[in-house]
């Protein structure tokens, strides 16, 4: 069920940050700080991207005692492909994007 839709500016920003180290798992709050996105923008974006298979999430044990387990995120193979496509499209801005 793919359809061509240009990713939003916020999504491009998140893709750029996540694709800088594609294998690295990132916490939501760190992503907020790095992208400058607010929680009200970041979380819906992460939810959508997870549903689209662009981002994967898993739980990690807390680093400090007494803290809750934290969600971490990274790009899937499809997400990395899209990130690369968006990076290439900077040179050719009219190119479309196929989101799952």
């Amino acid at each position: 069920m793919g359809r061509n839709r240009r990713p939003s500016k916020q999504m491009l920003l998140l893709l750029e940050v996540l694709s800088a180290h594609p294998q690295q798992w990132r916490h939501g709050y760190d992503l907020m700080k790095e992208t400058g996105l607010l929680s009200g923008t970041l979380y819906p974006l992460l939810m959508r991207m997870t549903e689209q298979g662009l981002v994967e999430a898993e739980w990690r044990e807390p680093e400090q005692l007494g803290r809750p387990a934290r969600h971490v995120y990274r790009l899937t193979a499809a997400g990395v492909t899209l990130a690369q496509a968006t990076a290439r499209s900077n040179a050719t801005p009219d190119q479309g994007f196929a989101l799952a």
């Binding site: 916490h27 939501g28 709050y29 907020m32 607010l38 929680s39 009200g40 923008t41 970041l42 979380y43 819906p44 992460l46 939810m47 999430a57 807390p62 803290r67 809750p68 387990a69 934290r70 969600h71």
Partner: peptide, 28 residues
Amino acid sequence: WAFAMQAEFEEAAEARTPFSFACGCLIA
């Protein structure tokens, strides 16, 4: 996702930005 937000809220509280974080989560 609610639990994920709750966990990150602790980080936001430590960084003294709990209110804006919580407002964002509520809007989301």
